[in-house]
């Protein structure tokens, strides 16, 4: 479904990604783990067109999308729940969701997607008229995911969905991520600080260190890997 090959990105003179290659198969959950500054967010932002790579390519469903502008990439069916949620804080929950469906012309599809979002995050329905900035961290994360789902993506990238969220809500959100993947068949690329959790729900994983992939394999295998255990899984 998604195929990144030899992707390099730099911020001015500093190179952030150096020849990263990874793939996400149809209907799978793949995770990208690594420390701060390893290049996880940069990878996602390059896929969604917010950053331009210096070399390498991104292919989605067999087509090259490397240099398309961000809004055209969204139109192809790639959703991105960005780091720090980036909800539109001055807009209402309702307006945030309708912005998620910005490219959707079909009213029936919008209504269907809204129902789906309310089905998995019922709290959003209760807070529809509320300004998004007044929601709790967990609710904002739900809104950010809901907003991305309104675009009816075929492939969804989630950047640190557990960051800054009350521990009891983290498990809810991860259950929903599994549900989204299972029920809607949406392929997921998950970037996560919490490597234990990420390896638990994914089938395949990549470890990113200082801009390149240092390890990859089935998530079940990586969980047993002693090196990885020492570095990311707390021994």
């Amino acid at each position: 479904m998604l195929e990144i090959s030899e992707l390099s990105v730099s911020y001015g003179a500093i190179s952030a990604l150096r020849g990263v290659s990874l793939r996400v198969g149809k209907g799978t959950i793949v995770t990208l783990i690594g420390g701060n500054g390893a290049g996880k967010t940069t990878t996602l932002r390059t896929v969604s067109g917010l950053l331009r790579p210096t070399s390498g390519s991104v292919r989605f469903m067999g087509e090259d999308i490397t240099r398309l502008p961000a809004h055209r990439i969204v139109a192809r069916g790639i959703g991105h729940v960005p780091e720090g949620r980036m909800i539109f804080s001055n807009l209402t929950v309702d307006e945030n969701l309708s912005m998620g469906a910005y490219l959707q012309k079909d009213k029936a599809a919008i209504a269907r997607n809204r129902d789906y979002v309310f089905g998995i995050f019922s709290r959003l329905k209760e807070r529809l008229r509320q300004t998004a900035g007044t929601l709790s961290g967990g609710e904002q994360q739900m809104l950010a995911i809901g907003r991305a789902l309104m675009g009816e993506p075929k492939f969804l990238m989630l950047d640190e969905p557990s960051l800054g969220i009350a521990p009891r809500l983290i498990s809810t959100i991860f259950e929903r991520i599994i549900e989204i993947n299972r029920d809607r068949g949406i392929a997921i690329l998950l970037v996560e600080q919490n490597a234990n959790l990420a390896l638990e729900i994914s089938t395949y994983a990549y470890v990113l260190e200082t801009g390149h992939v240092t390890m990859e394999g089935a998530s079940a295998d990586l969980r047993k890997n002693p090196q990885l255990k020492a570095a990311y899984l707390g021994g």
Partner: peptide, 13 residues
């Protein structure tokens, strides 16, 4: 509010 997030929902800036 947030040009990046706007692009990520498909808004042509």
């Amino acid at each position: 509010l947030n040009p990046k997030a706007a692009q990520l929902v498909g808004i042509n800036i």
